[in-house]
């Protein structure tokens, strides 16, 4: 039991874990440093646009996750 861990057991599960980690990376350093510029995109500061892109990307990843979980029929 000492060496047992809960990790994904399928390629789809690993893909989802990587997508979750990529989302967290997208909203934190160092990625956030790359969009830290005083420029405007569609009238909003770049950092604000990026924040909402990350936020809506979370929705997309969870939608994909729902399909995977429901296809595999496990909670």
């Amino acid at each position: 039991m000492r060496r047992l861990l809960v990790l994904p057991t399928s390629w789809a599960g690993w893909g989802l874990l990587i997508a979750f980690l990529a989302l967290v990376l997208a909203g934190t350093w160092p990625v956030i440093g790359w969009v830290n510029r005083a420029t405007l995109v569609i009238g909003l500061p770049l950092l604000v646009v990026w924040s909402y892109l990350v936020i809506f990307a979370c929705v997309v990843v969870m939608l994909i996750g729902n399909r995977i979980v429901e296809r595999d029929d496990h909670e």
Partner: peptide, 17 residues
């Protein structure tokens, strides 16, 4: 956009970390 163009011109330090 009108609000942020003015902030960009006068106080751009508010638009970045």
């Amino acid at each position: 956009g009108g609000v942020f163009e003015r902030i960009q011109a006068e106080h751009s330090e508010f638009l970045t970390l």
